[in-house]
Computed example of a mutant assay.
Amino acid sequence: MRALKSLFAAALVLAAATASAQPVKIRFAYVVPVANWPSILFEKQGLARHLGKSYTYEAVRFQGTPPMITGLANNEIEIADLAFASFAIAVENAGMKDLRVIADEFQDGTPGYYTDEYFVLKDSPIKTVKDLKGKILATNAAGSAVDIVMRAMLRKNGIDDRKDVNVVEAAFPNMKAMLTSKKADVIPAVIPFSFDPDLRAASRVLFTQKDVVGGRTQMIIWAARESFLKKNRAAMVDFMEDSIRAVHWWLDPKNHKEAVEIAARVSKRPAAAFDKWLFVKAGQEGDYYRDPNLLPDLKALQANIDLQQKLGLLKGKVDVSKLNDLSIVKEAAKRVK
């Protein structure tokens, strides 16, 4: 009997050891191919040294960031590429108090870098934001960052976003068609769709995100639940190390040609669609700002979320200083030479 108990105990220890040795599953949600890191992060072979050892990786595409909140709540994803607006909604309105900011994706409106644009048709009678009253506005998802910014601009100009306009949803790749077919009077266009030459030829910019915010927006952050981070800290440090190494490679100008080729392959679009702007600092003709060590601007993030609360879109105040864990990305950065 003792022998059987000892054998059973040994089997349990072995099973536990085997389980702990299994790589941690990391499913990372994103919206826009190429423009969002998760879609291309490890497409350059050899950069992810810990992949398949301490963790596995899968990029999962969503239409917008708000649906990622449900994905996190249902344990369908481990990390979400959340807009500042969706992060705040998840914490305050959806009650996910254990959600943590863990890294930067990109920042909008940083001096010398791109800021999102809102387009109307070139021959549209809409000349100012005040002319949008009674019009149809497109958004990718209610509560997304571009949606919040658009609503903020309306309210700044005395337009009630709930009563004075009609808002319809469309995926970013379909925005051009929404505008040119006159199913929407104004559309938000994010990189890379804003650089579509046909869109540029048919439209003009009504306003930019920087016009609304007045400065930098911590547009997208990486977010994960605290329980997952605590349970899998070692694997997450490995993942962040690989991510920072990959980001350094992508941002290095000497790798631009190969980066563009990979982007073209991943997106199934011509390389010319990426060559002039991808990871390039060139104002409105270049890319967003991306921190090379994946460090978010928490001061900007707080200001962005405060704007959201001011618009009445949050139940209460969200204190970013209590909702971040940058220790993992900072530890990982020390490993990368």
Rank of each mutant, 00 (worst) to 15 (best):
A3M: 08
A3T: 10
S6Q: 02
L7M: 10
A16H: 07
A16I: 12
A17E: 08
T18L: 11
A21I: 06
F28S: 06
A29T: 04
V31E: 10
A35Q: 07
P38K: 05
S39Y: 03
Q45T: 14
L47W: 00
R49W: 00
G52W: 02
K53I: 01
S54W: 05
T56Y: 02
G64K: 02
G71L: 07
L72R: 09
N74D: 09
A80C: 02
L82A: 04
F84H: 06
F87S: 04
A90Y: 09
V91S: 04
K97F: 00
I102P: 02
A103T: 03
P111K: 07
P111E: 05
Y113Q: 05
D116W: 03
D116R: 15
K122Y: 11
P125V: 09
P125D: 14
P125R: 02
I126F: 12
T128P: 11
D131A: 08
K133Y: 03
I136A: 12
L137E: 13
T139W: 09
G143M: 06
V146P: 02
V149D: 06
R155H: 10
V165Q: 10
E169W: 00
A171L: 12
F172S: 13
M175T: 03
A177T: 13
L179P: 03
A184N: 06
V190K: 10
S203W: 02
K210H: 05
V212P: 03
V213K: 05
V213G: 00
Q218E: 15
I220W: 09
I221M: 12
I221C: 01
A223G: 07
A224Q: 07
S227C: 06
N232D: 13
A235E: 01
S243D: 03
I244N: 11
A246H: 10
W249L: 15
W250S: 08
L251N: 14
P253K: 15
H256T: 13
I262N: 04
V266I: 15
A282F: 02
Y288P: 02
Y288H: 05
R290T: 06
D291P: 00
N293D: 13
N304M: 09
L307P: 01
L311D: 01
V318I: 13
V320Q: 07
D325R: 04
V329I: 15
V329E: 12
K330D: 10
E331A: 15
K334Q: 15
